[in-house]
Design a protein around this nucleic acid. Structure first.
Lengths: 227, 227
DNA sequence: TGACTGAATTATGAATTCATAATTACACAA
DNA sequence: TTGTGTAATTATGAATTCATAATTCAGTCA
């Protein structure tokens, strides 16, 4: 038991980074909008100092951009950003897949299988919200299985940027079915503890997801141009 | 040409992040030492506000750790950190190698060859400083060749953490020769524009470097325990 | 002498203040 | 009406101030 943990009271700025990050990732703070410090201060009931510290950290993560003397704005999720971010995440997940095969206990794998079953169930019920949550749980568990704090931190930063894209895209029915297939294969290799195969699968799974997102965004842009 | 760039005057906290990061990476601010805000403020001639903002950012990059109500300290480079960081960098460099083969112009490749020749020359002269600089230039050029800002940013963050380790290790003569060999092969594949091969080579090059560092650190620890 | 207590000092977390850059509002001219 | 220039307002960057937690150090007592 870690005794220091129980006393730990996160500082204001840490708390703010956490909450602001969630607001951005959950699309409450919309991309492109200015983030007036005053409003946020009032909303959170803190002074500008810790809030600005938090904004600096979020800027270094790429969730907001700081314009000199003109405050912060939530960064837009651009096509270019998606095309750049997904391949990097794909490499990290490949590594995670390899290591997870070596590190995860049978019990942990059983837990992931459980989430996988829940995900398939949500897919059949077309319950996007539950599906998304289960999917995220699975990926996070496989990342955690690498037992690598650095990998985990950077994956979280990158995933946060990309996760926002789900509010912009309409993944096709076909791609959804395909993703389920890919996850089935991943579970197979995980049970077989085939590290190389799972790594490759996770990498290509992410690259396919990237292609689907890009396709969907391009189509959305075309539609917008047409109207 | 980007017109906004020319006007850009970095804010104090950006400047401070940059300078502090350099001080840490260059081992001027030694791992483990406390970093009293007052001293740094006096040294840089700024008030505590921008300095603390900079520390928050550096903490999110893992170069310093913030202890509640007890200030910041430069993080130690641990064996575990190296073993976690190198594989992640290796994955990023694999991706960079693949993409660089596709993206770099002949002129850019010629420029890298030039740095490579300089590196070999420095190796033969046993000029560690020049060798290190040329080596870093080559890796940075190959990362830049991926034309991926996300990849570049995360690579820079990870490389900063690991770069500090060079002050702790004494790489063996054998490993040094081996590293040169690996770089020769990399150049070969780069000229041939064999993306997959260069990616694999860069990945294994990094993993070998990791093994060498770990070996050296373990030996250093053993020596310390003996005396 | 050495360990403990508690006041004094110091350093940090956060709020406030100040200076300045950016934005807005508005008057006036074309 | 539209555009331009200037004053007023607002928001930000940075310094300063304030409150509190941590540390230091002196003094006491065993």
């Amino acid at each position: 038991m870690n005794l220091t943990e129980s006393i730990k009271r996160p500082s204001l700025h840490e708390e703010l980074v956490e909450r602001l990050r969630n607001l951005i990732v959950e699309d409450v703070l919309k991309p492109g909008i200015k983030v007036p410090e005053k409003e946020l201060c009032d909303a959170f009931g803190v002074s500008r100092t810790p809030l600005r510290e938090a904004l600096k950290v979020l800027a270094s993560e790429g969730l907001v951009e700081l314009l000199a003397n003109r405050g912060a704005r939530v960064t837009r999720v651009t096509l270019e950003e998606l095309e750049n971010t997904f391949p990097v995440i794909a490499m990290l997940e490949q590594l995670a897949g390899e290591r997870s095969c070596q590190n995860l206990s049978d019990a942990e794998i059983a837990g992931i299988q459980e989430r996988h079953d829940a995900m398939v169930k949500a897919y059949k019920a077309r319950d996007r919200k539950s599906y998304f949550q289960a999917n995220q749980d699975i990926h996070n568990a496989l990342i955690a299985g690498a037992r690598n704090q650095i990998l985990e931190t950077h994956h979280r930063m990158l995933a946060a940027r990309v996760r926002r894209a789900r509010f912009m895209v309409n993944v096709s029915e076909d791609r959804w079915a395909e993703a389920i297939q890919e996850h089935e294969q991943m579970m197979e290799k995980l049970h077989a503890r085939d590290a190389t195969a799972l790594g490759e699968l996770m990498k290509s799974h992410l690259m396919n997801k990237c292609a689907a997102h890009v396709k969907s965004m391009v189509e959305a842009a075309d539609d917008a141009a047409q109207s």
